[in-house]
Write a protein that binds this DNA or RNA. Sequence first.
DNA 1: GACTAAGCGAGACGGTACGTCGCGTCTTAAA
DNA 2: TTTAAGACGCGACGTACCGTCTCGCTTAGTC
Lengths: 204, 204, 204, 204
Amino acid sequence: MSAISAKVRSDRRANRSEVAILEATRELLIEVGVRGLTVEGVAARAGVAKTTVYRRWRSKEELALAVLLTMVKEIVAVPDLGNIRDELITFVNGAVRILGKTLMGRVMQGLVSDFAANEDLGKAFREQIVSMRLAEVRRLIERAIERGEVRSDVDVVLVHELLFGPIYYRLLLSGGKLDRRLAERVVDAVLPGIRAGARYSRAR
Amino acid sequence: MSAISAKVRSDRRANRSEVAILEATRELLIEVGVRGLTVEGVAARAGVAKTTVYRRWRSKEELALAVLLTMVKEIVAVPDLGNIRDELITFVNGAVRILGKTLMGRVMQGLVSDFAANEDLGKAFREQIVSMRLAEVRRLIERAIERGEVRSDVDVVLVHELLFGPIYYRLLLSGGKLDRRLAERVVDAVLPGIRAGARYSRAR
Amino acid sequence: MSAISAKVRSDRRANRSEVAILEATRELLIEVGVRGLTVEGVAARAGVAKTTVYRRWRSKEELALAVLLTMVKEIVAVPDLGNIRDELITFVNGAVRILGKTLMGRVMQGLVSDFAANEDLGKAFREQIVSMRLAEVRRLIERAIERGEVRSDVDVVLVHELLFGPIYYRLLLSGGKLDRRLAERVVDAVLPGIRAGARYSRAR
Amino acid sequence: MSAISAKVRSDRRANRSEVAILEATRELLIEVGVRGLTVEGVAARAGVAKTTVYRRWRSKEELALAVLLTMVKEIVAVPDLGNIRDELITFVNGAVRILGKTLMGRVMQGLVSDFAANEDLGKAFREQIVSMRLAEVRRLIERAIERGEVRSDVDVVLVHELLFGPIYYRLLLSGGKLDRRLAERVVDAVLPGIRAGARYSRAR
DNA sequence: GACTAAGCGAGACGGTACGTCGCGTCTTAAA
DNA sequence: TTTAAGACGCGACGTACCGTCTCGCTTAGTC
């Protein structure tokens, strides 16, 4: 029992550092961005030794990703709204809002280059964000197929890319605004291609 | 005439360093990527003083961008193929090929974070790549409108984002393949929404 | 006790770098002089990072001064030789020897311009060398006054300047030799003015 | 005749640069000292190409010395004042004034290290300043010997060093003031040793 | 009065060293 | 045993001047 309580105490102690580090990271990400983030700065702000940071995360990028992941874990299931259009708009707009209005947009911009450079990082992002979004799109599409709104041979992966690609394109490359209208317009542009009864443009 | 030849001679001298630097950069980008690129390394490889590099480019990122831009200046006008589908596929596939098969893909991955961090860099990319692609899409769409293939109230910017967003999404985030089929499938997914006679999904 | 041994261990570790740096500096001062001394070179020779050098000394001049000070800390008290003449000759000759025969002469030549340019450096030299020599001259003069050899109203500062000024004048400006005779002749030239019973030349 | 006038005109053109460079050097010596002096800065201030500076002086130190020498060429002969004391005070005080009140003090401080490092520089200083002062001291002493004021076996070199050593010692090392009293007190301390009828302290 | 070469301004260049930053590792003392 | 504290080796940064080197322009002085 004392061992257990010790463990508990130890965990708490460990968590105190961990929480302090994450909080410091979050603050510094807001203040100076991923680019300006330094392990040294995080440790100082958290009142923690650099070694303690390194013991838990391999690099400032992993640290930034950890913070980013905590924010995006809000990818919640979209309730049944009765029609696929509203559901997709709701879902896509969730991403638009997070990327456009919160810290996450800047963090994403700062981290994206690291996804390619650092295998672990990219994998973590794909597994925890990309694949979850894909899964949710799949769920919504399948529900819509059952409703008869959407063709049954739809390529979910492609749809998912068509929905989110433009969002990230604006965030990362074109500098376009991430506003409410965006989600709606993207969804409206994609739907005609997957509506039940619609034909592939090619077949036309 | 003597003025011209003098200019040429002068240019040649100036260019000798410039060319050497760009070539060294290209080699190093292949070997170590944007992340591993250092001004020091470029200067050494080019047989040039560090100061000479800094005299022409403010940072290794600008240098990398310069190399990248030389590669993408191949965004050439798509000839009239008689139908918008083939034209768009040709155009989009140009980007897919460059990003998927050449150095440019890796360079893009490495630079994208800097577009947000460095105003000049982002501006240069937007003005020299994004806006040129947008202009070409506009040209193609307008031609298609004249042909009666496409609705006349199409939002060109959005179409452009729908076409290229998924490409970059794969390159930067999902890790999906950039293959020949990609361009075709994206175009076929986008066309239904802009075909003449098509209705907004919403109106349905 | 454990605290002490710990302190000692800690000192040893810290000192390892410090000693290596000072030794490298000493060697390089001999080889290339103050002028040719570079922090980069010192660090390389000492097998130490440049930052480690900068952590301890602000500039190569401070470093050179540190070496110089270790050498001149030999300004030891002159024993009672029974007469002021022998005592002063002994004392002045100490400086002549160090400046003429050891590295210190060259280091002094190299550093002297920095004493004026760098407040800290000049202050360190004045406090650790000049004032110690002045104090020793004062002690000797006072002893001689007690013996009745020297007038009691002697201006010790001036005497000190008359004794050492010519030495440095040779070292730095005239290029004259620093030999054994020098100390003797300077002392013999200065003594008549301060002998008990002597009168100021003016009073004559 | 045309050749001559050509030479003259050419000289004038050459002199225009030379004068501009020296004037710029003088200004910059006042503003930033020898330490802060750069060939680049001098050329810019003089509105002259760097090459033009290098064509005339080998280094910024030679340039600084050139300026310094123009200022000290005022070492003029001391008139016969009837007694050696007043003559020496006048002479020594000339140096005290120049070193204490004009730019020359700071320039000397900045150049002195270069006298040892640069053979040409040291030689120029010794030949144009030191030896001229020595010659003047010799002239004064010889006149005083004829007057019967001073012993005939005086070591002029030593006297010269005793007179000027303390001045430079203050300027360069001790930081003591260079005021009117200094010349007088040094002379009064040195004279007893060389007065006619005086004996070497040793002989006592 | 046109021609030519010498001298010049301008400034790019290769180079050395600067002093700084942050990395990730390692050591120590305290808890 | 874990931690805070922080020194360390390291690599690269971007800067300052160095002294050398073209490059055309200006400008005498010659033909």
